[in-house]
Amino acid sequence: MSEFIRFDKTDDLTVIYVNGEVDLSNSAEVRKTILAALKTTPEVKVDLSGVEYIDSSGIAAMVEGLQFANSNGRSFSLTQPSAQVKSIMELARLDQVFTIE
Rank of each mutant, 00 (worst) to 15 (best):
Ser77Gly: 02
Glu64Cys: 12
Thr33Trp: 00
Asn19Gln: 13
Arg31Val: 04
Ala28Phe: 11
Val97Trp: 06
Met62Ala: 11
Ala36Glu: 14
Lys86Val: 07
Ala83Thr: 15
Ser75Trp: 02
Gln67Pro: 04
Leu91Gln: 11
Pro81Met: 10
Ile16Arg: 06
Gly58Ser: 13
Ala60Asn: 13
Gln96Ile: 10
Gln67Ser: 08
Phe4Thr: 03
Pro42Gln: 03
Leu38Ala: 11
Asn19Ile: 13
Asn72Trp: 05
Gln96Phe: 11
Ser56Met: 12
Val22Glu: 05
Ala28Trp: 06
Ser71Asp: 15
Thr14Ser: 13
Ile5Gln: 08
Val46Leu: 07
Arg6Pro: 00
Leu38Gly: 11
Asp47Cys: 04
Gln84Tyr: 12
Asn19Tyr: 10
Thr10Glu: 03
Val46Lys: 10
Ala69Glu: 09
Glu43Trp: 07
Ser25Gly: 08
Lys39Met: 04
Ala83His: 14
Glu90Gln: 09
Pro81Ala: 04
Arg74Tyr: 12
Thr14Glu: 11
Leu94Gln: 01
Gly58Glu: 09
Gln67Cys: 04
Phe98Pro: 06
Leu66Asp: 02
Leu94Lys: 01
Val63Ile: 15
Leu35Thr: 03
Lys86Phe: 10
Ser49Cys: 03
Val97Thr: 09
Asp55Ile: 01
Ser56Arg: 14
Ser56Phe: 13
Gly50Glu: 07
Gly20Lys: 02
Leu13Thr: 02
Ile59Ala: 11
